[in-house]
Amino acid sequence: MEKTWNNKAWFMVLPVLVLVAFSAVIPLMTVVNYSVQDTFGNNEFFWAGTDWFLEVLESDRFWDALTRNLIFSAIILAIEIPLGIVIALNMPKKGIGVPICLVLMALPLLIPWNVVGTIWQVFGRVDIGLLGRAVASLGINYNYVQNPIDAWVTLIIMDVWHWTSLVVLLCYAGLVSIPDAYYQAAKIDGASRWSVFRYIQLPKMKRVLLIAFLLRFMDSFMIYTEPFVVTGGGPGNSTTFLSIDLVKMAIGQFDLGPAAALSIIYFLIILLLSWIFYTVMTTSDAQG
């Protein structure tokens, strides 16, 4: 669209700017404040410099949680991106099937995180849950409360169920924007189904895939509500991700200094990784 100079626009975004200032900028500055000081209450602060950062970085607890996060995100991306593409490719392009599929796909996205967690928490229970009972009746010893692998599997399945739709919808949007002539030309050129995907659909989906990849990475890396509701970080520490650890540290132990330092490190990791992914994927796009 046309760029226009319209000063009214600034008034329109002003409320958002104020909101962001209160909800993001000010809290962030507070966190920065906490991370370099020590307090024993009474609003008395002592300069702690980089002590908290060093403490966090030298703790096994941090590195273990970080490793869990990375593995979790890697698994999530490895499943959701290809699965999302496959589903999008098989969705109908026209007719009554389109709205039905779109609504079905959108449903999981409409459910709040904590509700998703609760649903699966109940769903997977061996005593009363449909899934838990069904799996148990197959003779598989499944219990996400006791077995770390079962806990992980439950979380991954839950996340896949919850978020694959997002990838599907983005890919679908990319796919429907491909003009019919491309498919016709490919038919005439005698292209195989794979060639059509490789040379027409994938290149055209690249941009939306980049967005899907970044969104899914950031979200999965920051996962909190679902493991909190379903496993509470257990069994043991097996599903204690950085976010859960952070809350334990800050709210559970009131170690505000290390928690603040961890928050900042966490924030920087996400920023850095997102930037790396973005750069790598856009430069390959430019060379493409």
Binding site: A181, A185, K187, I188, P203
Partner: peptide, 21 residues
């Protein structure tokens, strides 16, 4: 017969190219 089986070539209104190739 399908388009492939008829063995025809077609040039469209807007250029169709495989832009990664």
């Amino acid at each position: 017969l399908t388009t492939q089986q008829r063995n025809i070539a077609q040039v469209f209104q807007f250029p169709v190219i495989y832009d990664t190739m």
